[in-house]
Design a protein around this nucleic acid. Structure first.
Lengths: 148, 148
DNA sequence: GATAAATGATTGCACACGCAACTATCCCGC
DNA sequence: GCGGGATAGTTGCGTGTGCAATCATTTATC
């Protein structure tokens, strides 16, 4: 019993730490990307993830999963970026329900300018977090968890 | 140069992983807490953090920091919970600008009922995440990062 | 001790979000 | 090849959020 209770508490504590670090980083990114390039974090994420699909298109649904957004929010997010001519919708030929999205040159260009801001802010936010005792271990461990 | 570029990319990758795991867990918690107890994740967080301040009160600002919420959002969050009689505002005597908040018996009771739902959902969400190759390492490492 | 700057919290406003309902397209069984 | 169910995406609507401006109180300056 006590052992299982401990496991529950450890998970909850881990989640609180994760959420705290996430919240800190996200609000820093939000402020800097918004003020420098009028981009929200999730908008930047879309541009970034699209740029990584080198040559490949992405469906709305995949975009929604990549951003943890609902279908309706995904639609409007793509609308906003399309209105700013940062990406284009491309109708799917083999499945005409589906819609692909693709970065425009302007989108690619904005991403190129925004990326340094994003990266610098991320570095600063992580440095700040490393000063907080409850976040430091997670920040410290993060880089070693990637190669899968 | 290349080494520094790598560090930038590693940080970005770590952030994407962190954000992905956070998004997955948060949407699961949101769904279960909302449907079972009409609580959002951030509302649950407030009840939880207040219950941990055993005997101690918390100022609005501290609540805002604990939830990564703006002052205005904090005000309205406390309004919602106060309207449901889950917590009470207590004026600060030594600094009459400040406002303390305290769980009511009903708030404590609701938290007691919601906590099992929260914990079970968290366990399930982490198990799901462990199945995803890109998230598994972070999920695996999380429990070991806590004692600070 | 009066005025100015700073701090804690609240309100007006615009906007992004999720849910549920809807449309359009595809796929399956017969 | 036709009707019913599933799937991809969009829209109406209510609500939670951040920013900027505001009010109340405290603290600093003279």
């Amino acid at each position: 019993m006590s052992i299982e209770d401990d496991a529950v508490e450890v998970r909850a504590q881990g989640w609180r730490t994760l959420a705290a670090l996430h919240g800190l980083i996200e609000s820093e990114l939000e402020k800097s990307l918004q003020s420098e390039h009028r981009l929200s974090v999730v908008e930047y994420t879309v541009l970034d993830v699209l740029s990584r699909q080198d040559g490949w298109h992405m469906r709305m649904q995949q975009l929604g999963r990549a951003t943890a957004l609902s279908p309706s929010a995904t639609t409007r997010l793509v609308n906003r970026l399309e209105d700013r001519a940062l990406l284009t919708r491309i109708l799917c030929l083999d499945d005409r329900r589906g819609i692909y999205t693709e970065l425009t040159a302007a989108g690619q260009e904005l991403l190129t300018r925004a990326r340094p801001v994003h990266d610098a802010t991320l570095e600063r936010a992580l440095a700040d977090a490393r000063e907080l005792p409850e976040l430091a271990p997670l920040v410290q461990a993060l880089p070693s968890l990637l190669p899968a």
